[in-house]
Amino acid sequence: MALLEVLNLQAAYGQTKVLHGISFAMEEGSITTLLGANGAGKTTTLRALCGMVHTEGEMRFAGQRIDKRATEDIVRLGIAHVPDGRGTFVNLSTEENLRLGAYTRQDRDAVERDLERIYSYFPRLRERRTQQAGTLSGGEQQMLAVSRALMLRPKLMLLDEPSFGLAPLLVKELFGILRAVNEKEHVSMLLVEQNAAMALALADHAYIIETGRVVLSGSVDAIKQDDAVRRSYLGY
């Protein structure tokens, strides 16, 4: 059974329809990437999965319907969202931001251990733990957003351009951490990226979205061979 199944997903902002029946699925343990031009509907798809936009169509997570559910309940199923724009709690400290990521968890001791683990992944966040999060640099806030999502101990992470604003070296480091989390903790990931080359290097499956529709899908090896993809997204 697929971990995540989306069938004929439609969404609109007011009168403007932006998703015209998207279908895709991902297996447990997979890193699947959604690629597409600006405005294709990638962010909207991730927001739809979290119940943040009004949708039609079916969405299933681990067999359960999640469409028409409240965001707070979807999170409790183990879906963590690294939102577009980072979603920092700007007036709270870095550590308070991280603790909020674990808000729904009851295992207090494990939360403390995870906090340490996050600080070992991102030593920069440890240095900034008492600093007001709104004063962190853009890149640091991006690390914070990924870390906040990890604090949930999610089964599935929805990552909306996690490399945005990060220096190339940090992008490599972040993707290394994501790979490690995926391999060691079996966290599945749905990844939206501008950096298609990096995304295809990390993912195992890919879907190409154009103006609210899936136009191509397959394993990354197959996708990388596609001439149109190479021209539009990889630039060679």
Partner: peptide, 14 residues
Amino acid sequence: AAAQNPESSRLVGI
């Protein structure tokens, strides 16, 4: 958190 940033709060389950 909920007072400052309702959207991010929902995303962590508040």
